[in-house]
Nucleic acid binder design. Structure first.
Lengths: 113, 113
DNA sequence: CCCTTGCGCAAGGAGTTGGTTGCAGACGCC
DNA sequence: GGCGTCTGCAACCAACTCCTTGCGCAAGGG
């Protein structure tokens, strides 16, 4: 099962809509970590963290490689970039709307002159 | 009740973790719209959309002003910017990690010479 | 070969989400 | 004042989320 290639950005947003998973991502941004290492700072069972990692993996934010019995997790920054891209689009759309508004105001001022 | 000022970024991510709400945000990025206008493109009852707007309002992504019996919604881009900021932090942390790795490799190369 | 360690799957239960319908308040028009 | 429109709240229900416990399986160390 591929880690989902569609632009299911909503699943990525949903995955980050949880403090624990946000913290996991922050941790992984500082470097690879095994599931056990990820679980340590939390007051959660191992399996709960394993599940969170599964969710992050399924939405494409995290990948895992196999190293003996360990399964180090790695952040997929590209996926984060897609999120940032979507947000940027909205911001740009909003700003271009403001531009249009300014154009309009400029036109009005010119008209009045 | 203030629209929440904390950095509850997880609530913002959670709010965007829904296609309908992503679409609403996209719509609002193109300009103000009333709840009725927002509801139109969806195959949903009016109240369902009203609820989605409430969620977006509570997490600080959307604000509403009163215009007679209408309640035009406005995107709060600044809040979007906070999201983008968090994502950017993670990306930078990741990249600086790569930098450190490169430094390490450089040190190794130097050592070998 | 056994035992421990690291990890994931399955089942079950409390809580939350997202939908609906029904009702009520505020405004505009006649 | 009386009526239709725009909107939000309350109640209810199906579906999902997140946690836990229990089990299974593969890898390494004695």
């Amino acid at each position: 099962m591929p880690p989902v290639l569609d632009d299911d950005l909503d699943t990525v947003f949903a995955a980050l809509g949880d403090r624990t998973r946000m913290a996991i991502i922050s941790r992984l941004a500082r470097g690879e970590a095994t599931v056990g290492e990820l679980a340590e700072p939390f007051d959660l069972t191992h399996q709960a963290v394993s599940r969170h990692v599964g969710i992050l993996r399924r939405c494409g934010l995290v990948s895992q490689r196999v190293d003996g019995q360990r399964r180090p997790c790695r952040l997929d920054v590209e996926r984060l970039g897609e999120l940032a891209g979507w947000i940027g689009e909205q911001q740009r759309a909003w700003e271009s709307r403001l531009d249009r508004l300014e154009d309009h105001l400029a036109a009005v001022r010119k008209d009045r002159a």
